[in-house]
């Protein structure tokens, strides 16, 4: 018997736009059903941090590293908002879609490859991080932070950082065999990185080894970039920080694709 020979369309390549769009549309349509809850938590959470630290701590220290404490925390919590709207949804969302909703089985049965699936989902979370990341800044402006033109770059910084953290979260979900494993990552990785990022206190007060370690923390680069966006750029240093965030994003992106391919294709 002969094999049916269909009219051959052009060979389908990698990272095709229609495939990325398809996955993004799925995310956007789903988002329309839960945006309230997600916007609520992404807005209220950093606001609470800002209020608690800004006023709680701010009553003890009025100035830190040359900034008013509210300004210091207001710019710092942008990174917190980015982390909370990328790494966490990526970890939990990816795992739920894989394990319980079995969404990926449906998506991968369509002309979408794992690489495209991971890329589109990370892009979507990066976009959300870019938007939600601005919330603390807006709140801080209400509490006395002076608006600056440089702040217009914050969505971009939050997007780049958010992409890296989303890919980090997807990787964790890809390697984890159960929900419980997330505890290790949250306690041993995310919490320390979150605290030693220069969000609530400057790294310059820490011992030297911790300062050096801090420079390896992508969240710290995000904090510094946002602060400089609000208070004035630091030339080459900021470019290097941006480069570090881009590199973090690229490396995590490839790791996420590797982890998910291992999980989804057997």
């Amino acid at each position: 018997m002969a094999i049916a020979t269909p009219p051959r369309p052009a060979r389908l390549g990698r990272l095709e736009r229609p495939a990325l769009t398809g996955v993004l549309v799925r995310e956007i349509v789903n988002y329309s059903s839960y945006w309230r809850a997600s916007t609520f938590s992404s807005t209220v959470e950093p606001t609470i941090y800002l209020l608690a630290f800004g006023f709680g701590f701010g009553s003890l220290v009025s100035e830190i590293a040359g900034y008013e404490y509210v300004e210091f925390v207001g710019t710092g919590t942008v990174a917190t908002a980015v982390l909370f709207s990328s790494a966490f949804p990526a970890m939990f969302g990816t795992f739920v879609k894989y394990q319980f909703q079995r969404t990926y089985d449906a998506v991968l049965a369509a002309p979408v490859d794992t690489e495209e699936l991971v890329t589109a989902e990370a892009l979507w979370m990066a976009i959300r991080a870019g938007v939600y990341g601005c919330v603390p800044l807006v709140v801080a402006v209400f509490f006395g932070l002076d608006p600056a033109w440089g702040m217009l770059t914050v969505p971009g910084i939050a997007f780049v950082a958010g992409f890296g953290w989303a890919c980090f979260g997807i990787s964790v979900a890809g390697f984890a065999s159960s929900f419980e494993n997330f505890n290790y990552v949250v306690s041993a990785v995310l919490t320390p990185l979150f605290l030693v990022a220069g969000t609530f206190f400057p790294l310059s007060e820490l011992p030297e080894w911790a300062q050096i370690a801090g420079e390896l923390n992508p969240l710290h680069h995000c904090v510094e970039l946002v602060r400089h966006a609000a208070f004035g750029w630091d030339g080459w240093t900021d470019l290097v920080r941006l480069g570090a965030l881009v590199l973090f994003g690229l490396v995590m992106w490839r790791i996420a694709i590797y982890a998910m391919t291992r999980k989804l294709v057997d």
């Binding site: 269909p6 369309p9 060979r11 389908l12 909703q101 079995r102 089985d105 049965a109 369509a110």
Partner: peptide
């Protein structure tokens, strides 16, 4: 991928 573009799949588990 080309094959999947012309394929419809109904999985065993509702997703």
């Amino acid at each position: 991928k080309q094959a999947r573009a012309q394929l419809g799949v109904t999985p065993q588990l509702d997703n």
